[in-house]
Design a protein around this nucleic acid. Structure first.
Lengths: 158, 158
DNA sequence: TACGATTTCATCGTACACGATCTAATTAAT
DNA sequence: ATTAATTAGATCGTGTACGATGAAATCGTA
C-alpha cells in the first residue's frame, strides 16, 4: 500500500505510530512476562537487575542505572524491595562511602535456575525466528541510541 | 558474527535483550517526547488519547482502551485529569448508561495545531529514514500481535 | 417479571519512572 | 584546612499501569 509521505499528517501516521508500536509492544512483553515472573515473586525491572547481577555481581547503584537507563530515584526503592525479599544486599562501599554496592545473596543466586526457562517461553510467544529477533534488536538499539543522542544534545549536556 | 544458538544462555542473550531493547527504546521515546509535551501540559499517554480523539471524536472509555491496550483502571484517572484540564468532556451515554463517552472540548481540539510539529521533531531525533521507520513499525506490530495472541491463549481466553 | 450473568466503568493497593530537591561524602582550589 | 563544586543516593510529588474488587446498568432466559 503506497503512501504519500509529503503532508504533515502522513508523518504523524508513520513515526507517531512507530513510537506507539514500541509503546504497545513493551506492554505486550510485560504481559507475557508477568505470569512467568509472578511465580518467582519478581517484577520485570527487578528481573532485569538480577540478569545484570547474575552476569556480574557486586555493582553500584549507578552502574546498574547506566545499564538500565534508570535514575537512582527509581532504583533505590526497587533495590530496597529486593533487599527486603532477601535477594540482594545493599552496603556502602568502604572505599567511597557515597556509593552503595549491590550484591546477590544465596537466594538471589539460586533464582537463576528457576528463571532458566523464561527466555524460551518468551521466544515461543514472540512467534519469530532467532535471526529475525536479532535483526530487530539491532535496529531498535540503533533507534534508541539515536534518540538518546538527541536527548543529550538538546539537554544541558549532562 | 555466527553464534551458537543451542545453549540456554545464548537464548537469554538474544531475545531477552530484544525485550530489553524495546523497553529501553520506549524510555528513550518518552524522554524525547517529554520536553515537547511539557509545553502543551500533556503526558505521553494523554497525547495518545488526543491523537485518537482528533481522528474520531466521541469515543467510549472502552474503545480508547482497546486502541491503546489499556484498561479502564488506567484510563479513568487519566481521563479525569484531562477533564480537569478542560481538554475533554466525560458524559454517560443516555442510550447505555454503563458507558462513558469522551468528547473533545474546543480547547482539546485547539491543541492539535500546537502539536503539529511534534511528529517532525521525533522523526529528526530518530535519525532514520521514513522507510526504515515504516519497516520497523511493521515488524514491531507483528511482534506485538504475536505476543498478544500468546497472552490470549494462555489466559482464560477473555 | 424476575433473577442470574455479563458488560462497563470506577476504586483501591502496589509498583515502576521521572524531575526536582535534599543530604552526605569526596574532590578541588584557594 | 576551610570552602566551593561535584558526585552518589535518598526522598517527595505526580503520573502511568496492573490485578482485584465493587457497583450500576443491561441482557438472557425462563
Amino acid at each position: 500500500m503506497p503512501q504519500d509521505y509529503s503532508g504533515p499528517d502522513s508523518v504523524r501516521n508513520l513515526e507517531e505510530l512507530l513510537c506507539f508500536a514500541v509503546y504497545s509492544a513493551n506492554h505486550a512483553f510485560n504481559r507475557v512476562y508477568k505470569p512467568l515472573l509472578d511465580r518467582l515473586g519478581l517484577t520485570y525491572p527487578q528481573y532485569l537487575v538480577l540478569i545484570l547481577l547474575w552476569e556480574e555481581d557486586d555493582r553500584t547503584v549507578g552502574s546498574l542505572g547506566r545499564k538500565l537507563f534508570l535514575e537512582s530515584n527509581t532504583l533505590t526503592p526497587l533495590l530496597k524491595r529486593m533487599e527486603g525479599m532477601g535477594l540482594v544486599e545493599r552496603r556502602r562501599d568502604p572505599e567511597d562511602e557515597r556509593q552503595v554496592r549491590i550484591r546477590l545473596t544465596g537466594k538471589g543466586r539460586a533464582l537463576r535456575d528457576q528463571a532458566a526457562d523464561i527466555p524460551r517461553c518468551i521466544l515461543e510467544a514472540s512467534g519469530m525466528s532467532i535471526d529475525a529477533l536479532q535483526g530487530m534488536k539491532t535496529e531498535i538499539d540503533f533507534l534508541r541510541d539515536n534518540l538518546d543522542a538527541a536527548i543529550r544534545q538538546s539537554g544541558t549536556g549532562s
